[in-house]
Amino acid sequence: MTVDDGVLTVIREAVHKAAPAFDGDDETQLITQQVLDSLAVLKVASRLENQLGVPIRDAELLPRNFASISAMRAFLATKGC
């Protein structure tokens, strides 16, 4: 169980905004289960940048960084969030 420090909420909101029908949990595989397509990942990344004030580089738009909500949390932790 990951303690939500606010960042998780932002990530969950970003995923729901990009994929309104999403009803999985933090471990659901968003890419391989096709919850997020390419444009949806861009939406999520853009929202995370705006909401958290952290730039996400193109080279970081990798499947492993957006594989799940938990993966995004871990990725953002590496950027100081």
Partner: peptide, 16 residues
Amino acid sequence: LGGEGAGFAVLMHAMR
């Protein structure tokens, strides 16, 4: 380039 699965990121970088 960028490893397997990085094609979209490469594309976005090029297009940006």
